[in-house]
Amino acid sequence: MRLHLSLAALTLASAALPAFADQVNIYSHRQPELIQPLLDAFTAETGITTNVAFVDKGMAERLVAEGARSPADLVLTVDIARLKQIVDAGVIQPVTDPVLDANIPETLRDKDGMWFGLTTRARIVYASKDRIKPGEITTYEDLADPKWKGRICIRSGTNDYNIALLGAMIVHHGEDYAKTWAEGVKANLAKKPNGGDRDQIKAIAAGECDIALGNTYYMGQMLSDPETKPTADMVRIDFPVFENGGSHLNISGVALTKSAPNKEAALKLMEWLSSDEAQRIYAEKNHEFPVKDGVPRSELVKSWGEFTPDTVSLTDVAAARPAALKIMEEIDFDN
């Protein structure tokens, strides 16, 4: 049986948790529908139940406030910056596990075992099939060119995904260049930033703009849904690169809390999420890129073609988050 609990309910339930030895309590930045197929499969295979509280904001602060009383065993996050925030808050414990080390590449896990990447996704360009020729957009830097004035859509500039992309721009070119680039992108916007990545695809299909920035897996989700497929079919994925690098990647990841009342079961879930079966589900259900070598991408994702992943350190990208956020606020990107 699966329980999707509110934060308050999960916290209030913590006193009763020892009565249920085979369970894992999860605080998740990830939308429940994205992780439910994985957790259902884990429970079916192991008999260990999972209790999930969706935490959109303030996860680190929540864990700090709860301290040793926290019922949470694991945190699931949507990008490297949020992983770093939780680690910096001192609410995570290191994990040394040969299964995780074998399944997850060294570049996608913390050197001290504080977090482990579970999937990757590229932040790329959505482009109108009718109005943008293939190969017309090749670099992220090009998006600041005035030739795109009035043609770009984007979600909030302070969204974690866009802050991570700007952080990568800082790592590649420095803060001054990144600020000028962000100002250039803002000047090219067709409308005020709003909505999520799916909304940018809809805006292109509706003719409100010609190109947008978004994550690959949102396109996969829309193409897999009969209701949204006609809209998504009007839009193409292009993989731009940094001028001295590749296409920007981010990760979803997992970490073990310092309190972890069900540590043994939580470690089993961490290992399972890195397994062939879990990585296959990530690929087929969520259209994300598996981190485990040998697990193929979904056929839909394969149809988008190959690309060159950027090789800058995700830890460096996360460290640039404060500077990236400051830039977006200084230039008032969303207004």
Rank of each mutant, 00 (worst) to 15 (best):
Met1His: 15
Arg2Ser: 15
Leu3Asp: 07
Leu10Phe: 10
Leu12Trp: 10
Ala16Ser: 14
Leu17Ile: 14
Pro18Ile: 12
Gln23Ile: 06
Val24Tyr: 01
Val24Asn: 01
Asn25Tyr: 03
Ile26Phe: 03
Tyr27Ala: 12
Tyr27Asp: 04
Ser28Asp: 04
Gln31Cys: 09
Gln31Asp: 15
Leu34Trp: 07
Leu34Lys: 05
Ile35Leu: 08
Ile35Gln: 00
Asp40Leu: 13
Thr46Asn: 11
Asn51Val: 05
Asn51Cys: 08
Gly58Ile: 10
Met59Cys: 10
Arg62Leu: 11
Val64Thr: 15
Ala65Arg: 14
Glu66Gln: 15
Ala68Gln: 14
Ala68Thr: 14
Pro71Asn: 08
Leu76Asp: 00
Ile80Glu: 01
Leu83Ser: 06
Gln93Ala: 15
Asp97Gly: 08
Pro98Gly: 11
Lys111Gly: 11
Trp115Tyr: 12
Phe116Lys: 00
Phe116Cys: 03
Gly117Asn: 02
Arg123Pro: 01
Ile124Phe: 02
Ala127Lys: 02
Lys129Val: 13
Asp130Met: 12
Arg131Asn: 15
Pro134Val: 12
Thr139Tyr: 10
Tyr140His: 05
Ala144Trp: 01
Trp148Arg: 12
Lys149Tyr: 12
Gly157Cys: 06
Thr158Lys: 13
Asp160Cys: 09
Ile163Val: 15
Gly167Cys: 04
Met169Cys: 13
Glu175Met: 07
Lys179Cys: 03
Ala182His: 02
Lys186Ile: 10
Leu189Lys: 02
Leu189Glu: 01
Lys192Ser: 13
Pro193His: 06
Asn194Gly: 12
Arg198Phe: 05
Arg198Ser: 08
Arg198Pro: 03
Ile201Tyr: 02
Lys202Ala: 14
Ala205Pro: 02
Ala205Asn: 04
Asp210Gly: 07
Leu213Cys: 07
Thr216Gln: 02
Thr216Ala: 04
Met222Arg: 03
Arg236Gln: 09
Arg236Ile: 02
Phe239Cys: 05
Glu243Phe: 07
Gly245Met: 04
Ser247Asn: 13
His248Asp: 03
Ser252Lys: 01
Ala255Glu: 10
Thr257Asp: 10
Thr257Trp: 04
Ala260Met: 08
Ala260Ser: 14
Pro261Ile: 06
Asn262His: 15
Glu264Ala: 14
Lys268Glu: 10
Leu269Met: 14
Glu277Phe: 05
Glu277Ser: 14
Ala278Pro: 04
Arg280Val: 04
Phe289Arg: 00
Asp293Ser: 13
Pro296Trp: 08
Arg297His: 07
Arg297Gly: 00
Ser298Lys: 05
Glu299Asp: 15
Glu306Phe: 05
Pro309Glu: 03
Leu314Met: 07
Thr315Tyr: 06
Arg321Ser: 02
Ala323Val: 07
Leu325Pro: 03
Glu330Gln: 14
Asp332Leu: 12
